[in-house]
Design a binder for these strands. Structure first.
Lengths: 350, 350
DNA sequence: TTGTATGCGTTATCAG
DNA sequence: CTGATAACGCATACAA
């Protein structure tokens, strides 16, 4: 209630200077058809009274918000450590440079996610949306398309689904393929896979990368070597245990993100496996943390920060109504080899 | 330009149903003085046409935005790994539960930070602000106070400055004191300190905690055992090297956040110091990463996520005009002892 | 129970 | 060069 002590409006400037609101507005906006003396007088008054245009009124008037929306499940613990931070940093930087703000809607566990979308998007709070972690039959995408809100997606549609929207994704399939091949080259034959949850669109790409690598090496794909995890440490931990119980002869594990790889390593070490020596583990993402794990994690790097930046750089023209040429971008990954993948033949001291 | 395909307004519902805008508005808002049949008819129409109230118009009308502002330097690399993520997660969760969104303004390197404040705050884009990482003579606080925008601060004013605003902080001084005492008890006498940048308000609290601990143990405070770092790994790395060059007999290092401690450990190990054995290192924050460093970091834990939540919980009543009782909260820290602090006498194999 | 009129603060159109 | 007026979409005081 003790708000707005110094809230100055055009009307106040008008009263102070004696000019009309229109003239004030035009003077401040830099229009040429304002007497230079008048302008100076107005600018001085605006300065004195600490005038700051009401952005909400501007938004209503202009039907533009200079804001990008991002709807994320902050309550999802994988948020706090993993992918989203880096992505947000890239988004924030690029948005800031373009004088855009970022509106974050954090859906709480009980809520319907679509409610957030309807409120933010349908409520005209943003000019465009960045959507992350695509899902099968993603109704968010269907909604955004229906209402015509500019959007860009981090991650393609799942294989076999229509993918006629702008996105940036990395080639998960090739990335996981490379990681699996790396393990195979090191001599591993019993290789488990910890996938993301099945509803996530890229899960199938990663599964395929793994399956292909096995096929390339003449190994058979055993479904019981594959489990799903929750993309957090706990998922990797439990997944590793499950696989270890099923297959005590397991010697390697492909994990579909770094957090799960870290959790898996913990379980493996608890089970007495020598990760980095006789047991191999790979991750995906290359989070900062992964460089400092014990042993340092061999992982499939994706340029998350850069992706965040480019998402914005792609979204802004769409918002401005300029059709893009390059609208679907598939980035390569890079296998970062550290020390978490040993050879199957013990090489300690070799 | 191909926007707003399905943008329905009250006016459209009015045309469709034949009722006035007022009645539509009141029916949808659940007012009792609307004929129940009318209401049903209106609700059905709203549903059919996918009506979603324009939040910007509502904001302008109500002079409230249901939004909390957070202005952060995403370009600051410490953002992506450190304190802010966790804080943001806490803020996001608590805000989401209260149906508030979070507006993030990411100032780019070149910009004047105060411009962001003026635009967001003076522009009425938010109902309240969360301000993090207080500085000396913090002009942001002066500004928020001047314009009467509700705000709450993560971190007190620096010692000796007025601190008549609501905040949540941890007792840095006691925390660092405890860490330093821990090292002293383990036999360390030559203990370095890597502080945050001098302009940060809590820097002096942490310096005092260190100085006090030395005094308690009858050790003298040597200014050349103290350096400032940038709160990132690089700062810890460089700080450790500086101190090591100055004092080759150094056996322990108190670092004012975990990231710097991690960087310092790297430098120390490069210089052949046995961190966790003959050399002791402590951090501050207890980031998830610190549990998994090598060796695992002994650190002063602060409940960052919880702080984020409580910041929102404190801010909301202020926004609602309810004066708070407890307005300045000082939380205790907790020393989490892991393996990065050895005793000065070699105990390898002891 | 419903409708008319007004205003939130801004910008654009148009007339003087 | 300047000003009156309208409109963005919504919600309310007041009238009918």
């Amino acid at each position: 209630m003790y708000d707005d002590i110094s809230m100055t409006r055009l009307k106040d400037l008008s009263q102070k200077t004696g000019f009309s609101i229109t003239t004030i507005s035009r003077a401040l906006a830099g229009y040429a058809d304002v007497n230079e003396q008048t302008r100076q007088q107005i600018i001085r008054a605006a300065h004195e009274m600490g005038y700051q245009p009401n952005e909400v009124a501007r938004q209503l008037r202009a039907q533009r918000t200079q804001t990008i929306g991002l709807i994320i499940p902050t309550h999802d613990h994988s948020f706090s450590e993993g992918f989203f931070n880096q992505l947000l940093r890239g988004i924030g930087d690029a948005a800031g440079e373009a004088r855009f703000d970022v509106l974050i809607s954090a859906r709480s566990p009980g809520d319907d996610e679509m409610d957030s979308y309807r409120r933010i998007v349908g409520g005209n709070r943003v000019d465009g949306i960045i959507l992350a972690r695509t899902r099968y039959q993603d109704e968010r995408i269907a909604y955004l398309r229906k209402v015509g809100m500019p959007f860009i997606v981090s991650g393609r549609a799942a294989p076999g689904e229509d993918c006629d929207f702008p996105y940036i994704d990395v080639d998960s399939q090739a990335g996981i393929h490379e990681a699996a091949i790396h393990l195979i080259r090191l001599g591993h034959r019993q290789i488990g896979l910890i996938l993301p949850p099945p509803e996530i669109a890229y899960t199938e790409f990663r599964r395929r990368g793994y399956a292909e690598a096995l096929a390339d090496a003449g190994l058979t794909y055993a479904p019981d070597l594959v489990v799903h995890g929750d993309l957090m440490r706990s998922g990797g931990y439990q997944g590793a245990i499950t696989l270890l119980e099923r297959h005590p002869d397991l010697t390697a594990l492909v994990c579909c993100n770094d957090l799960m790889a870290l959790g898996a390593m913990q379980a493996l070490q608890m089970y007495g496996r020598a990760v980095g020596d006789t047991f191999g583990v790979t991750g995906f993402d290359d989070l900062p943390i992964s460089e400092h794990s014990n042993p340092p994690l061999t992982t499939v790097r994706q340029p998350i920060y850069e992706i965040g930046r480019r998402l914005v750089e792609l979204l802004l023209p769409v918002i401005a109504g300029q059709p893009l040429q390059e609208t679907q971008i598939l980035l390569p990954t890079e296998l970062v080899i550290r020390e978490s993948c040993g050879a199957i033949s013990s090489r300690r001291g070799a």
